[in-house]
Amino acid sequence: MTGVAVVAVDRLGRRPLLLGGVSGMVISLFLLGSYYLFLDDLAAIAVAALLLYVGCYQLSFGPIGWLMISEVFPLRLRGRGLSVAVLVNFGANALVTFAFSPLKAWLGAGIVFYVFGVTAILSLFFIFFIVPETKGLTLEEIEAKCL
């Protein structure tokens, strides 16, 4: 799916791939939550939801997140901006990784996946209302558009 994103990103744009991919992630997270709460005898649901999640992530946040952080910072701040963005990205990954087991023990896996699903819905709103489309723009045009 990363290959599909790489081939399609300049034709379709960043925002459509982000919105479509994250929408698929929302569906998969709610399917996973439902599997753990209501459908635990249907393992195929969990497998399908995991495959959907990975595919949609690799179509959206996986490659496009890295692409966009290299585009949206003004040239004079790009080095520091990228450093902070990468730090926040890896910090958030570590937080999710280390918090998952304690949250699962406290709330149960189904609720944790629902919470992740709600977080993904919030990211859809962020993408829709805040993230600029940078398809076909030079770095200078992106800088002028984002400031």
Rank of each mutant, 00 (worst) to 15 (best):
M1V: 15
T2V: 15
T2S: 13
T2A: 14
G3T: 15
G3H: 12
G3K: 08
V4W: 15
V4R: 12
A5Q: 08
V7F: 14
V7R: 14
V9F: 11
V9A: 14
V9S: 14
L12F: 04
R14Q: 07
R14M: 08
L17S: 06
L17F: 07
L17M: 13
L18H: 09
G20M: 05
G21A: 06
V22Y: 03
V22E: 03
V22P: 01
S23V: 11
G24M: 09
M25C: 14
M25L: 10
M25W: 05
V26Q: 05
V26I: 10
I27T: 14
S28R: 00
L29R: 01
L29H: 03
L29P: 02
F30W: 04
F30R: 01
L31T: 00
S34N: 12
Y35H: 10
Y35I: 06
L37K: 10
L37G: 05
F38C: 04
D40L: 07
D40E: 13
I45W: 01
A46W: 01
V47P: 00
A48R: 04
A48F: 07
A48Y: 01
L50M: 12
L50F: 11
L50A: 13
Y53I: 03
V54F: 11
G55D: 07
G55K: 06
G55Q: 07
C56L: 07
Q58G: 12
S60W: 04
S60K: 05
F61V: 12
F61I: 12
I64R: 04
I64P: 06
I64Y: 02
G65L: 08
W66G: 08
W66N: 06
L67C: 01
L67S: 02
M68P: 06
M68T: 07
S70K: 04
E71D: 01
V72H: 05
V72E: 08
L75E: 11
L75V: 14
L75A: 13
L75W: 05
R76I: 03
R78H: 11
R78P: 11
R78V: 11
G79I: 06
G81N: 07
G81K: 09
G81L: 10
L82W: 01
L82E: 01
V84H: 03
V84G: 05
V84K: 07
A85N: 11
A85F: 08
V86F: 10
V88P: 09
G91Y: 11
G91M: 13
A92E: 07
A94D: 05
A94I: 15
A94T: 13
A94M: 15
F100G: 12
L103K: 12
K104H: 13
A105E: 13
A105H: 08
A105P: 00
W106Y: 08
L107Q: 02
G108C: 09
A109D: 14
G110K: 06
I111F: 09
I111H: 09
F113Q: 15
F113Y: 15
Y114C: 13
Y114N: 13
V115S: 02
V115Y: 04
V115L: 12
F116Y: 15
G117I: 00
G117A: 01
G117M: 01
L122K: 04
S123D: 02
L124I: 06
F125Q: 06
F125N: 08
I127A: 00
F129I: 09
I130M: 15
I130R: 14
E133N: 10
E133G: 09
T134K: 05
K135L: 00
G136E: 04
L137A: 04
L137K: 14
E141K: 03
E141C: 01
I142W: 03
E143F: 00
A144C: 10
L147R: 14
